[in-house]
Lab assay of single mutants.
Amino acid sequence: KTEWPELVGKSVEEAKKVILQDKPEAQIIVLPVGTIVTMEYRIDRVRLFVDKLDNIAQVPRVG
């Protein structure tokens, strides 16, 4: 699995749990929505963009 659209609106902790069940090797990085990030693709990275309430604001994707 490479993306988790069902996690939008969920808490960071809930999202981490689901992603690590699907992809145990994932390196999860939590960032505020709108953060500028590098464009290199990494198969072991999932970025979680969160709103001010620490809920997932964008679809988490591998990369």
Score class of each variant (00 low, 15 high):
Q27P: 03
D22R: 04
D51G: 03
I56G: 03
D44M: 05
D54Q: 15
V59P: 08
I28G: 01
P32G: 04
E14I: 12
S11N: 15
L20S: 11
D22K: 04
F49R: 02
E14P: 03
V18C: 09
E14T: 12
P24Y: 00
N55P: 02
D54I: 01
K16W: 05
R45Q: 15
G63D: 14
I43Y: 11
E14K: 07
E25Q: 11
V8C: 05
T2F: 10
G9V: 02
R47H: 14
I56T: 01
Y41F: 10
I28D: 01
E3M: 06
D51Y: 01
F49D: 04
L53R: 13
V30P: 03
N55L: 12
L53P: 04
V8T: 03
G34P: 06
T35K: 12
I19C: 00
L31A: 14
P32E: 07
R45S: 15
E40A: 06
V30Y: 02
L48M: 06
L48Q: 00
Y41A: 14
V30G: 03
N55R: 14
P32Y: 04
Y41W: 10
D54N: 15
Q27C: 11
V37I: 11
I36D: 15
P32Q: 09
V62Y: 10
L31K: 07
E13A: 14
P60S: 01
G34A: 06
A57G: 05
D54Y: 09
L31T: 11
V18G: 06
I36Q: 13
I43Q: 13
D44V: 04
Q27D: 14
Y41R: 12
E13W: 07
V8M: 10
E40W: 02
L53K: 14
L20D: 04
R61L: 07
K17Y: 10
L7F: 01
D44E: 11
M39S: 15
M39R: 13
V12D: 03
L7T: 04
L53G: 12
E25N: 15
T35F: 03
R42L: 11
K1D: 05
I29C: 13
V33S: 06
K16V: 06
L53E: 13
G9E: 00
T38M: 08
Q27N: 10
R45K: 14
K17Q: 10
P32A: 06
P32N: 07
L20I: 07
S11W: 06
K52P: 12
S11H: 15
I36Y: 14
I56L: 05
P32I: 04
V50A: 06
D54A: 11
L31H: 09
P32H: 06
G63T: 10
E40C: 06
D54P: 03
K17T: 10
A15Y: 00
P60G: 01
L48G: 01
E6P: 02
L7E: 00
P32D: 07
I56M: 03
K23W: 14
A57D: 05
R47P: 15
V30W: 01
L20E: 07
D22F: 05
I19G: 01
K10G: 05
T38A: 14
L48P: 01
K10N: 08
P60N: 02
W4P: 00
F49A: 04
K1M: 07
R61V: 12
V50Y: 06
K17F: 08
N55D: 03
Q21K: 12
D51T: 01
G63M: 12
E13I: 08
A57I: 09
N55I: 13
L31I: 15
V8D: 02
I29T: 14
L48R: 00
E14A: 09
A26P: 02
Q27R: 12
D54K: 12
K17H: 06
Q21F: 09
P60L: 00
V12R: 06
F49G: 03
T35Q: 12
L53V: 11
L48K: 02
K10E: 08
T38R: 11
T35E: 14
S11A: 08
E25R: 09
G9T: 02
P24L: 01
A15D: 02
V30I: 09
T35C: 09
T2S: 12
D51V: 02
T38F: 06
D54G: 14
V62G: 06
I56H: 03
V33Q: 10
A26Q: 04
V37C: 14
P60T: 00
L20Q: 11
V46T: 02
E6M: 04
P24T: 05
Q21I: 09
V46P: 02
V33D: 04
M39G: 15
K10W: 08
V50N: 03
L31F: 09
E3L: 04
I29Q: 13
R45A: 15
K16G: 03
R47S: 14
T35M: 07
M39E: 15
G63I: 08
Q27L: 07
E13K: 10
E6L: 04
V37A: 14
D22V: 05
V46S: 03
K23H: 11
E6G: 06
W4Y: 10
P32T: 05
K17I: 07
R45W: 13
V12F: 04
K16A: 08
I29W: 06
V62F: 08
D44L: 04
E3T: 08
E13D: 10
K1N: 07
P24G: 04
E40M: 06
A57H: 04
N55F: 12
L20W: 09
P24Q: 05
G9K: 01
T38L: 06
R42V: 14
K16R: 09
V37D: 15
I36A: 15
K52V: 09
R61E: 08
I43S: 14
K23Y: 15
V46C: 07
Y41Q: 14
E14D: 13
F49M: 09
D22A: 08
V33G: 03
V8I: 10
R45F: 15
A57Q: 07
K17P: 05
L31D: 08
E13C: 07
L48C: 08
E6T: 05
D22N: 07
V18R: 12
N55E: 07
K52S: 14
E25P: 02
V18M: 10
G9M: 02
N55K: 15
L31R: 07
L31P: 03
E25L: 09
Q58H: 10
I36H: 15
V33A: 11
V59K: 05
I43D: 15
V62W: 12
L53Q: 15
P32V: 01
E6I: 03
Y41N: 14
K10Y: 08
K52Y: 12
A57W: 06
I19E: 03
A26E: 02
P5S: 03
V8Q: 04
K23G: 02
K1V: 07
T2A: 07
K23P: 01
I36K: 14
V62P: 05
E3G: 04
E13P: 10
L31E: 13
E14C: 10
E6S: 05
I19P: 02
V33F: 07
K10Q: 09
A26G: 05
P60R: 00
